[in-house]
Design a protein around this nucleic acid. Structure first.
Lengths: 141, 141
DNA sequence: GTGTTTGCAAAGTGTTTGCAATTTA
DNA sequence: TAAATTGCAAACACTTTGCAAACAC
């Protein structure tokens, strides 16, 4: 919404090695506004249109991957055939509402993995993803 | 490989409410042989061809979903755009080798989730999936 | 015989890519 | 102006679907 802190977003992009083009600036402003979001390319494209940010769907896809490579976003995999991107870079996990497709964060403090498994030789852990899949409670009364 | 215990597979399908057709029997024999497998539709289709089981790719897809609905298989979601099916029905988790796409099991005894998160009201946990993503160790010598 | 299942080909969904035109530095 | 970026449309990978023919019971 604010128009001035453009400089901040420009700085972020520059430091990520990405030229601050009109499209990247617009998408970065939508994504990196400090709120935690779980968004698909289509949703972001729609959000851009709604905010008068002209950008093609192809560029949205490319930009999401560039942001991911630059460490500005993470990918969350909870269902086949659809990629979600997560603006929360801190350690955390996810609830996935199977009914609605909604994703919400589980703070790292609320989950704790004890007893880590023995890691195969020659490999190292990239990350550990925990997805708690939820369904609506069915009440029969 | 064995030809006689067909009766066993027929029984499994019958109890799952699925007619034991030639295609389902063939696929069930490949899948439910007691080993733990993580397989895609394409891979299963190829395996069927290699074993002289005539079945179309569309039927492989349909059969995998029928088996899943019947509780004979589980779906594992580790990468977007590809569905893996898991013949291991006991509680366990997964290693995912990002480099190769390979999936292996983590026995439930080797991982332990403490302190479960607070579940949103009106929902119940369907399942908890843990994916430990691995990369090859990079050695610089 | 009747309802189920199959296979094909077509359609669908989400994503990536080649390339000319445009923009950035 | 040289290199990076964009947008389009086409290609892509994977999956689902409609429907006539084949099959199971």
């Amino acid at each position: 919404m604010s128009d001035r802190p453009f400089t901040k977003v420009i700085k972020i992009l520059r430091e990520a090695g990405l030229r601050p083009t009109r499209q990247r600036l617009g998408l970065a402003k939508l994504l990196l506004d400090g709120t935690n979001q779980h968004i698909t390319a289509e949703e972001l494209h729609k959000a851009a249109q709604d905010n008068n940010i002209l950008v093609s769907l192809a560029t949205v896809y490319n930009t999401l991957h560039q942001f991911k490579s630059a460490g500005l976003l993470r990918e969350v995999i909870v269902e086949p055939g659809r990629a979600y991107f997560d603006t929360n870079l801190s350690k955390h996990h996810h609830f996935y509402f199977e009914q609605t497709g909604e994703i919400t964060d589980i703070p790292d403090s609320q989950i704790n993995i004890e007893r880590l498994p023995h890691i195969p030789e020659g490999t190292s852990i990239n990350c550990i993803d925990v997805v708690v899949r939820l369904s609506p409670v069915i009440r029969d009364d």
